[in-house]
Design a protein around this nucleic acid. Structure first.
Lengths: 253, 253
DNA sequence: GAAAACCCTGACGTCGCGGCAAGGTCAAGC
DNA sequence: GCTTGACCTTGCCGCGACGTCAGGGTTTTC
């Protein structure tokens, strides 16, 4: 019944539920002292080494870096440990917040995707997601598809308060979205000097809410978002939208 | 008012809120096509590239790996994307659970540490933490200190149901903990054949709950936890504890 | 006596970039 | 014209905690 108490690295590792590679790694970093060797070079552990190894694991699973673990084991502890732990707790709190937000976005995306839309634009803010569901989401207009990407772009680069204005404008456009996109689709391949451009601009100005010409453009300009938008349109489309905005401005004055 | 729409890498990156280094990285991985170059070798972007870059960011911030992002962008999408997202959601759920548990442990550790105890043993399960607070935590017996490490070890390697038994036994020992540790401390430097060992074993058997000899040892044996424990005691201590267990077994029969 | 299962050291791979070296380019101010 | 400073280029090392070979030797088991 006399238990010898000497094991090789694999068994020690198994006792604590880690890999032999990890144990050797801890040796390299000086976390765990190198044990005696057998004549064949094998490391020979006592069972009590498992207690130390388990301590290392507990600390590292907390999220401590291995060098911090070493410091704690070496005795640079006391107040020091408390500080480290508090810092760590803050860190974990931030990570948790990030994770939560990701999951929120993912849930919205999944709901959208499972409803049948492709929605490969990536995660959007909840408001925008809801709005898109109402808007031209179900249409298969090329321009509507592009605009979804534009909205996704705005959603990622604009600050929150500006997004609020954007949402308001989009809601104003809501009822006429199908017509707006029909007009824009028709312009896709036209030359910007085509007389149709002017007529389309007038049509757009009639369909779009005049809030579009109010605060929003200055907000977008601050982030060059409007330029990005126009750059992604065909020349005729860009010209028509520009002209429509000019008409809206005139209407407000 | 004709906007040229060509920017260099720094401005493009700033439009989306990433670093130029990241943009070059996306080029290397084929996420973002290499744009035309100017005569001096500078990359020359159109503003619409910002839309694509923003898509990359949105997807990667979701937690997709960059090669998965590439697949999504390349069109291996549709059902594929939904699958990837579902998998990702599971993954995030697991990560969140892990984080939550870490924070729980951290909170317990911090409470313990701020209360003045060193508690550098690492995170323990909430039950055990509470138990230790009652037990010999505040004593400065060397053996009690060792036993705290042993308990921490058991806490990390034993499955949950076995831990329940362990807790029950410890609660049984609770009122006599100080005496138990006094007896064991006295044995630390004795030879295992010292006659005091037998007397100490009898004393321990009187102090310890006989549930200690019931199911627990078989559970511990399954994980070699008992061997690890005895290996970490001095020979005389180990002998006394073994003898005490034998006495308890006899008492139950 | 041969296969399976273990051990050793050493070195490279992972992931998403950050940071540096060692240059070339360009606009502005002296 | 010359410098300064802010850009840009390619290329390569570094991080953190190991995983995963490669290329050996050893021990256990059938």
């Amino acid at each position: 019944m006399v238990f010898t108490g000497t094991v090789r690295i694999g068994e020690l590792a198994a006792l604590v539920g880690v890999t032999p590679r990890a144990v050797r790694h801890y040796h390299q970093l000086g976390l765990l002292p190198e044990p005696a060797r057998r004549s064949n070079g094998y490391r020979e552990y006592a069972l009590r080494d498992a207690v130390v190894l388990a301590r290392i694991r507990r600390l590292s699973e907390l999220g401590l870096g291995l060098d911090e673990v070493r410091n704690v084991l070496a005795g640079t502890e006391g107040r020091d440990l408390v500080e480290v732990l508090e810092e760590l707790d803050d860190d974990l709190g931030r990570q948790e917040a990030v994770l939560g937000e990701r999951r929120t976005r993912l849930a919205a995306l999944l709901a959208q995707a499972r409803a049948g839309h492709l929605a490969a634009d990536g995660p959007l803010s909840p408001e925008l997601t809801a709005l898109l569901a109402d808007l031209g989401e179900r249409s298969n207009s090329p321009m509507a598809a592009k605009d979804r990407e534009h909205l996704a772009y705005f959603d990622t680069v604009l600050p929150e308060e500006t997004r609020g204005d954007l949402m308001a404008v989009l809601r104003g456009m809501g009822p006429h979205a199908a017509q707006v996109y029909a007009v824009l689709d028709a312009l896709a391949d036209l030359h910007p000097d085509d007389p149709q451009v002017r007529r389309s601009a007038a049509a757009l100005a009639a369909l779009l809410p005049d809030t579009l010409a109010a605060h929003l453009p200055s907000h977008l300009a601050a982030h060059q978002a409007a330029e990005v938008y126009f750059d992604d349109l065909s020349p005729a489309q860009a010209a028509a939208v520009r002209d429509a905005l000019a008409l809206l401005r005139a209407r407000r004055a």
